[in-house]
Each structure stands twice: as structure tokens, then as C-alpha cells.
Design a protein around this nucleic acid. Structure first.
Lengths: 150, 150
DNA sequence: CCACCTTTCCCCACAATTACCCACTTGCAG
DNA sequence: CTGCAAGTGGGTAATTGTGGGGAAAGGTGG
């Protein structure tokens, strides 16, 4: 499931954040009723339940003898929680995820292919800054991007 | 049975640790009433009773002529205990396992495919550190991870 | 075989967190 | 102006996590 758009919300003292109405709507349309959240790359990743099921399936195939990949599974799966929107469309972000992503007040939710991302506004702005410096000045990368047909 | 999520608890002077409510719930739903704990890779592994039965079955096939595998079986099986949650949802961790995993006060429980892991908070944080250094900086590995559809 | 000490089991009680409501505000559409 | 949907805030009841007391069980030394 692909998500689109950028949304700004506030996370309240109880740790609740609103999920963009269009995201919730698409979830319900496809007969699902929950998201899965986990921690990755300084923000939180959110997946539709069906997409998450596929991920878990692949994670469970990682051989437990592969030390490095197991470290990844530990981190990624260890961070995961099911999140069911309440009647107002919010989900509860548990303390461990809140602190990982540095979510305190202002929060940005970004649509991505197969997932959405929850960022603290601060970090998101820094990320944008890095993007403009590192990515746009990297001619090689810019060319690859234009190959995407953009 | 797959477990997910990261939970922080304190182990009390009697050696009791809480088991995350969702883990207990899933166990009961599948008609089981106990876990099995054993020592491995600096932490404790916890299995649902049914999954543990499968493991024991496979361990019992290890030929007694294979010296190295037998050493493993001795260690793995020798550390194993059945653990039944009390009315408050805690299990008692015997002293031998407590000292193996260095469990003293703060404890982290991680969900994994087919098992969960009990870490001392200290060791877990070191593990995270290694993960960020070794795994995320390994471009090859990061590519393999993204092949998991993440 | 008994007395003693330690460990484990089974309660109860309290604190913290979460789930489930309902209410208010704002912006947009009819 | 009215009605609806979206986003925010808060109250209360239920669940979850923590600590401790005392009885039962198990192990050890005399």
C-alpha cells in the first residue's frame, strides 16, 4: 500500500498522535483495521497490517546463525507494535518508540511507498537540510534520480 | 509463534520478572500455559511450550557421537527450565540463569520470531551499539536487509 | 530421622499506564 | 447558518506492573 503526502500533528502527553485521515481511509477500504509501527533510521516506520505480515514472514526466515542479520531482526521486530486507531483516529505510541524517534510535541508524518514515516519536526527539518546539501550536490545521485523519470 | 515488541521491566530480589501481557495472552490463546527458558548468547531465550517441544525433539536426534554438538546440547538443554507465570504474570528466573544473563535490576524483553529474549538493560544497550556500528555501516548488509521488503 | 535454613509458591495491595469514552474547536461545504 | 469531518484535550475505569508477607516445599547437616 502506498501512502502520499506530508502532515503535521502534535503528539499529546499521553503519547497519542493522529494518523492522516486519507491513510486511515485507505486502510479501512482494504478491509484492515490496524497499522504496525517500528523504529528505524531515527524515525518510526508505519505499515499497513497486510504489508507488515509479509515483512514478519521474511524476518522469520532469517537464520538465527547469521549474527548480524539477527541483530537487525532484534532491533526491528523488537521495536514493533500493533497500533489500532481510536475512535478519533489516533494511535498510541509506546514510550520506547517515542524516545527512539525523539517525539515530544510537533510531529511530521510522511507518505512513502509501502509505508509512512513519523518524524519529530526538528529531526525532519535537519533531514531536509542534509538532503539539500548531500543529495542535490551529488551529481551522480541526481542523475540516478532523473533516471526514475523525474 | 512470533513475538514482537520491546519491554522494560525490573527483576525483583526474588528473581521474578514480568512477562509482557501480549506474550502471555498469545500463549493462552493457543491453549498453552507455560514458557521454557534457557541460556544462550549472553541473554535468555524464551519459547512457547509447543515450540520448545519441537526443539527438544530435534535436539534428541543429535547423535551422541558428535562431540561438539553434544556440548551444545548439554549447555542449551542443561540451562532449560519450564516457567509458569504467576497470577500477576511474572515468572521466576532461577539463579543460574539470572547470573548467566547478568540480570540484576533492569531487564529488557525483546520479541523475535519463534522466541523472545531477556537481556540485562546494560548488555542490551551494548548490543544496540554494536548493531549500529557493525550492521548499519555494512552497505552490503543494508542492501540485503532492504531485500526483505523494508 | 529430625531440625533448620533457603527457596519457591500463592496470596494481597498499591501505583502506574492504557483503553475507552465524551466534549470542544476549527475549517470547509451545502 | 448549519452540518459534518478532522484534530485536540481530558476524565474515568480497567488493565498492567511492582513490592511484600506468609505458608509450603526442598535441601543440608547433625
Amino acid at each position: 500500500m502506498i501512502f502520499r503526502g506530508r502532515f503535521e500533528y502534535t503528539i499529546d502527553p499521553k503519547g497519542r498522535v493522529n494518523i492522516p485521515a486519507p491513510f486511515r481511509e485507505r486502510l479501512l477500504e482494504s478491509g484492515q483495521d490496524s497499522f504496525f509501527l517500528t523504529n528505524f533510521s531515527d524515525c518510526l516506520y508505519g505499515f499497513a497490517a497486510d504489508d507488515w505480515a509479509g515483512i514478519e514472514e521474511r524476518l522469520s526466515r532469517v537464520p538465527s546463525t547469521d549474527r548480524k542479520k539477527n541483530a537487525f531482526v532484534r532491533f526491528f521486530l523488537g521495536g514493533a507494535v500493533e497500533a489500532v486507531p481510536d475512535k478519533q483516529g489516533r494511535i498510541l505510541v509506546p514510550p520506547s518508540l517515542r524516545s527512539y524517534a525523539g517525539l515530544e510535541k510537533e510531529v511530521v508524518i510522511l507518505g512513502m511507498p509501502n509505508r509512512f514515516e513519523i518524524w519529530s519536526l526538528d529531526r525532519w527539518q535537519q533531514e531536509i537540510g542534509r538532503f539539500e546539501k548531500e543529495v542535490l550536490e551529488d551529481r551522480e545521485l541526481v542523475r540516478e534520480i532523473s533516471d526514475l523519470g523525474i
